[in-house]
Design a binder for these strands. Structure first.
Lengths: 229, 229
DNA sequence: AACTGTGAACGGGTTCACAGCC
DNA sequence: GGCTGTGAACCCGTTCACAGTT
């Protein structure tokens, strides 16, 4: 598990000593969005204080997070906005486009297929699947829905590595397995169920009702406390 | 910030010594879902091992999490499924219905208004708003879209405490402020922007492209590593 | 014998304080 | 003087090992 000290590979590319903590990775997209916003206002330099403020975190955290990428700031000055945008984009792999598969074209699947934030960030829905025969061929945007039966063939053909599951919960596990078999390495799951996938697969879960239930917990608490007074 | 030792209020209700850690709160809804699933299969008792397996965590974590709620298990036996469902539901405030407001009826807002997982968990979309005059009155399910201008009046009238923001990013901060002014205490934000709200307001953020960007980071890494070999 | 409940050890992430550089 | 970069201290959450209970 231990990483070697700073070093160079035979090709000469620099290898980072410390891996970037997961928590930091999750914040990089937020910094990136803020920086792009600053750039659109022609702002050229930003301090960790300003960046923190706009990102909803505190300044030391920003500095530590950015330091994992390298020493891209200038002491006494701050960070160059454009340069930092480039570095974070590169780190997040956003200098390339990612074709994404979307499985399940119900309510949510359709909404996701039209979500503008995806193409803006370089994610292009390159294939959409549904199990309902009668919907096959239907256009969503400029994409035709394919039948789930064609999943493996279509994904391999298109070289898709990232997929979104927006099926009902009951279909999600089987879908995940087929995606993995078709060469997908990263899955974003919206179905409200726990998925089991091989170790090597990156899986993220977004559960809409879980989020509301967490809020309800705190509401419920507040109400309880009020009654006790 | 410090909690008093176990104690009773004047009303006699037990006050928990330790507050439930946030991380635990976030897992309770998952346990609940699994337990309801077990109940529907007429399973009466479950061990931490089985519950952990189905919830995608490890057994000690399940036991520790549940121990924050109280000692609801039986040593040598396990947890009574129905009883645990009741206790977790109560803790999460799901023994009551929560009316929820939904602001922004675009793509995503519409999908959320039709999301079946919400009513199943006791969350009822009780008001839906949009800024587009021409859409006011339009029915989504059995709910008519109201104009955003009526937000304060409508929310107070309906006593709504939880709201979902599904507006474009540019409108989200103003929406949040109006929600807070209208008495909302918990907000689930889908707009891709950082919101600033008063300390007392519970805010959760779901950012769809951030999730994909995190996956892209790991894809990018894997690809980089491959090239170096 | 089986399984829960929990103090203690551990580890990742956050915060702090300040050294380092412009 | 201003702001970054980072070791060290701290904190929360996870894991472990086992005592406690049926």
């Amino acid at each position: 598990m231990r990483e070697p000290p700073p070093d160079r590979t035979r090709s000469g590319a620099r290898v980072r000593a410390r891996p970037i903590p997961e928590a930091t990775v999750a914040r990089l997209p937020v910094y990136l969005r803020v920086l792009q916003d600053l750039a659109s206002q022609q702002i050229q330099t930003v301090s960790s204080e300003r960046l923190a403020e706009a990102s909803g975190v505190n300044p030391p955290k920003v500095r530590k997070d950015l330091s994992y990428l390298g020493s891209y700031g200038t002491r006494g000055v701050g960070y160059d906005v454009e340069y930092l945008i480039y570095q974070i984009s590169r780190e997040l792999g956003l200098t390339q486009d990612w074709p994404v598969a979307l499985v399940g074209m119900g309510n949510l699947g359709q909404a996701l297929s039209g979500y503008k934030g995806f193409p803006e960030r370089g994610f292009r829905i390159a294939a959409a699947f549904d199990s309902d025969e009668s919907r096959v061929g239907e256009k969503v945007g400029n994409l035709a829905i394919e039948h789930i039966g064609d999943l493996e063939r279509s994904l391999k053909e298109k070289g898709i590595a990232i997929a979104i599951i927006a099926t009902p919960a009951a279909a999600a596990q089987e879908t995940a397995e087929r995606l993995v078999a078709a060469g997908v390495r990263s899955i974003l799951n919206f179905a409200p169920t726990v998925l089991t996938v091989p170790e090597r697969i990156h899986l993220r879960q977004v559960d809409l009702s879980v989020e509301l239930q967490i809020l309800a917990f705190y509401e419920q608490r507040a109400a309880g406390r009020k009654r006790e007074v």
